[in-house]
Computed example of a mutant assay.
Amino acid sequence: MRNRSVGGPENYHEDSDRWLFVVSGTGVVTVDSPAHRDNAGDLVRSEAGERRGIENGGDGPLETGNFYTPPR
């Protein structure tokens, strides 16, 4: 079984912003605030130091591309 979620309260990057692009599926994204649903084609930014996580919010696979600026 694959993971249904990644990240969480201890997941943050002190010096990098993260851009998360939902390639396919539906994710429930949390960024230092209440969770929100994001679908294929959505782009979510979290700033350096913000706690972040994503959970699969659908029945099918969730695929994302994650970009960090500046890179680690």
Rank of each mutant, 00 (worst) to 15 (best):
R2Q: 09
N3T: 11
R4Y: 08
R4A: 09
S5A: 13
S5L: 09
V6P: 02
V6L: 12
V6T: 12
V6S: 09
G7W: 01
G7P: 01
G7S: 04
G7Y: 02
G8L: 01
G8F: 07
G8M: 00
P9A: 02
P9M: 01
E10V: 05
E10S: 13
E10M: 09
E10W: 11
N11G: 13
N11R: 08
N11A: 13
Y12E: 14
Y12C: 13
Y12M: 12
H13Q: 14
H13C: 09
H13V: 07
E14H: 06
E14R: 10
D15P: 04
D15L: 15
S16F: 05
S16Y: 06
D17S: 07
R18E: 15
R18D: 14
R18L: 15
R18W: 12
F21Y: 13
F21H: 14
V22P: 02
V22W: 03
V22C: 02
V22R: 01
V23M: 05
V23S: 06
S24R: 04
G25N: 01
G25P: 00
G25L: 01
G25T: 01
G25E: 00
T26Q: 10
T26A: 08
G27W: 04
V28A: 14
V28M: 14
T30M: 04
T30D: 04
V31Q: 00
V31A: 00
D32W: 00
D32V: 04
S33N: 11
S33G: 13
S33A: 15
S33W: 14
A35P: 08
A35Q: 03
H36T: 12
H36R: 14
R37Y: 15
R37S: 15
R37D: 14
D38Y: 13
D38V: 13
D38A: 11
N39K: 12
N39T: 14
N39M: 13
A40C: 07
A40L: 08
A40R: 04
A40F: 12
G41D: 02
G41M: 05
G41N: 02
G41V: 09
D42R: 02
L43H: 09
V44W: 04
V44A: 08
R45N: 11
S46N: 12
S46T: 10
S46C: 11
S46E: 11
A48K: 05
G49W: 02
G49M: 04
G49S: 06
G49K: 04
E50R: 11
E50M: 14
E50S: 10
E50C: 09
R51I: 03
R51S: 11
R51W: 02
R51H: 05
R52N: 07
G53I: 06
G53T: 03
I54P: 01
E55M: 11
E55W: 10
N56E: 04
N56P: 05
N56I: 00
N56K: 01
N56A: 05
G57H: 03
G57C: 03
G58I: 01
G58V: 00
G58Y: 01
D59Q: 07
D59Y: 10
G60A: 11
P61D: 06
P61S: 03
P61G: 06
P61I: 00
L62R: 02
L62A: 00
T64S: 03
T64N: 04
T64D: 05
G65I: 15
G65S: 15
N66V: 09
N66I: 08
F67M: 10
F67L: 12
Y68H: 06
Y68N: 07
T69H: 07
P70T: 03
P70D: 00
